[in-house]
Amino acid sequence: MFAHTFLNPHYMKIALLGDPSHNITPMWQAFLKNVLLCVVAEPLVLLVALPIALLRNAKSPILAGPRFVLTAYVDFARGVPLILIVLSVYFGFPILDIPFVSSRTWFQYGLFCLVFCYAAYVSEVYRAGVQSVPFSQTLAGRAIGLSEFQLLRHVTIPQALRIVVAPLINDFVSLQKDTAIIGIGAGVIELLKAAQINQGVFFNDSSYAVAGLLFLSICVPLTRVADRLQAKDMRARLAGSQS
């Protein structure tokens, strides 16, 4: 009974490859939307999060204002469920009637939601990375006359990046899954929507299994890569513990 409902090969095949007679989008095609969204969102997240992290780590009193604003943003973006942001953006932005903001595509709104949410998480990962570079490295960089910017560029950030690669991949895995939430607001047939339609047409839940497998096909390899990098980083740090 369980297998018939959730893992029915017949319905799984139809879900994955589509069924022209029922005019159903193949799920592999729908999944391309999710993949595209996360592939475009991730670099943006990595880019946007860096200045947030650096500004929040900066000690200069001149930056107290921006620091406060960014701290509030990070708290907000990490504290509010993504689904809430998604619904607010998709059903709120278009009726605001603001020239640039109100006339964007579903894809652009989706990017905004993901970057808004994940840049906050990733900025915290960066911050932890920068802080885990020992202060002795900062001293060594200053000792050879580097400016504070050069110190970040050549000493702190390269070392912090090594430390954060694995946690960043974990966040990427999570972002990849959350593209499904975008589908709830976007009104386009991405993977989750496609699975729902399928389920509605055939009264069979196997399409959800297909959706799960497709997400897993990206998540699992990435997670393995993250684990491997983490183990490698740990070994390197143990080997280099003298310096």
Binding site: Q137, I144, V155, G240
Partner: peptide, 28 residues
């Protein structure tokens, strides 16, 4: 004015050569 520390503080992500050339290249 150069300084050398008790715990060496070499840059672990750079080769010996790059450790030595970083100051002259970037700062000078």
């Amino acid at each position: 004015v150069g300084i050398v520390f008790q715990s060496f503080n070499l840059f672990p992500h750079r080769s010996v050569l790059d450790n030595i050339t970083m100051g002259p290249r970037r700062a000078l």
